[in-house]
């Protein structure tokens, strides 16, 4: 590698931190605009949904085992199980299905 690894790491960390820090430090008042309020309300659910599908289907060795993990996660989450239970249940479903594939 020609470039300095520590400069790479510093650039990564600085850019990522600035992205996270600017809105939190600069926006000091309650946002009154109903559109912006609603927009911010939907952002997390939309982002997480878009990040999960379709990426989850290529997260394991086989799309079918991934689908089993996904379905297990949906069922457990529907019944309001904790984050850990949902994640562990999804992993277990993948592991078990791959035993039979």
């Amino acid at each position: 590698m020609e470039n300095n690894i520590y400069i790479y790491i510093a650039v990564m960390a600085a850019v990522t931190f600035l992205i996270r820090a600017l809105p939190l430090t600069l926006i000091r008042q309650e946002i009154k605009n109903p559109f912006i309020k609603s927009f911010l309300y939907y952002v997390p659910y939309v982002t997480l949904s878009a990040m999960t599908v379709p990426a989850i289907f290529s997260a394991t060795r086989n799309p079918w085992s991934a689908a089993a993990g996904f379905i297990m996660a949906l069922i457990l989450a529907f019944f309001r199980k904790s984050l850990l239970t949902v994640a562990a249940g999804a992993c277990a479903a993948v592991y078990i299905v791959e035993l039979f594939l």
Partner: peptide, 9 residues
Amino acid sequence: VALYGMFVA
């Protein structure tokens, strides 16, 4: 799938 399981939850 652990990470995605958390997203779903």
